[in-house]
C-alpha cells in the first residue's frame, strides 16, 4: 500500500510493470527515464544478469509534484519476466498500488502472455489482492514489429485473450519507438493516485 508520511507531507506510490520475459518492461522505463531525464532527477537502478536480462528489478522513482498538499513520489518497478524468477516477482509485488501488464504482441508469445497474466493473478492473491480491483493498465507492446513483417496478433485477439473479463484500459504501444509509452504511464499514475484519494483525504486531516 502507498505509504503516506504526514510529517513530510509525502506519498510514496508503488507501480509495477509486469509481463512475460523479453516483453519490453525494462525498455518502457528506459524510454521514460531517457525522455524525461531532466524532470526525473534521480537515477534508474537496474539489477541485471550478465546477459542483460532483469535479474531482480528495475527501479525508477520520480516526483510528479504536489496534489492535495502532498508531494507524490511515484516508484516504478519492473519484475524479472523469466518463469524461474517467480520468488523475485512476488517480492517486488509486495505493497504494489498499481500495475501495468506489458503483453508481447508477437503471435509466438500468445501463450506466454496468458500464463504471465495468470501468474500475476496468483501472486497478487498471495497478498490478498485481486487483479480485478487493483488499478491496472494493459499495454500491447511491439506493435512496430508488424511493419517489419514479423507476425503479430491483432488487438482484438489480444483483448480476447487477456482483457475480456478485466476490461482494463489498454494501449497498443512500442516501447522501442516510444509510441504510447508515456500515455500508458500517465494512465496508470492517474488510476493509482485516484484510487488513493480517500486515503489522501484522511491523511490530510
Amino acid at each position: 500500500m502507498a505509504l503516506i508520511n504526514p510529517k513530510k507531507k509525502e506519498v510514496q506510490v508503488k507501480i509495477v510493470y509486469y509481463g512475460p520475459g523479453r516483453g519490453g518492461k525494462t525498455t518502457n522505463l528506459e524510454y521514460i527515464n531517457k525522455k524525461f531525464k531532466s524532470r526525473i532527477k534521480s537515477e534508474m537502478v537496474t539489477v541485471k544478469t550478465y546477459n542483460d536480462r532483469t535479474l531482480f528489478f528495475d527501479f525508477l522513482p520520480f516526483d510528479i509534484g504536489m496534489i492535495k498538499g502532498y508531494t507524490i513520489k511515484i516508484q516504478f518497478y519492473t519484475v524479472p519476466g523469466q518463469v524461474k524468477y517467480n520468488a523475485t516477482r512476488k517480492l517486488v509485488l509486495r505493497g504494489v498500488d498499481g500495475i501495468v501488464f506489458v503483453a508481447d504482441s508477437m503471435t509466438l508469445r500468445q501463450e506466454m502472455n496468458i500464463r504471465s497474466l495468470e501468474n500475476l493473478r496468483e501472486n497478487l492473491a498471495s497478498f490478498n489482492k485481486d487483479l480485478n480491483s487493483i488499478p491496472l493498465v494493459i499495454q500491447y507492446n511491439k506493435r512496430d514489429l508488424g511493419k517489419q513483417g514479423i507476425p503479430i496478433l491483432p488487438i482484438e485477439s489480444l483483448e480476447k485473450d487477456l482483457n475480456s473479463t478485466l476490461k482494463a484500459s489498454y494501449f497498443p504501444a512500442s516501447a522501442v519507438t516510444g509510441e504510447n509509452v508515456a500515455a500508458t504511464m500517465k494512465k496508470i499514475i492517474s488510476l493509482t493516485v485516484i484510487s488513493l484519494k480517500e486515503k489522501l483525504d484522511l491523511g490530510g486531516k
Binding site: 528506459e30 531517457k34 537515477e43 534508474m44 537502478v45 544478469t49 550478465y50 510528479i64 509534484g65 516510444g178
Partner: peptide, 25 residues
C-alpha cells in the same frame, strides 16, 4: 510532467548510457 515541449530527445542515443547499472556479474 509528460509534456513534450522543451524536451530534446535523441532517439538514436544509447538508452543505457546514463543508467546506474548494478551488474551482478
Amino acid at each position: 510532467f509528460f509534456a513534450d515541449d522543451e524536451l530534446s530527445f535523441d532517439e538514436s542515443s544509447d538508452i543505457h548510457s546514463d543508467e546506474m547499472i548494478i551488474d551482478s556479474s
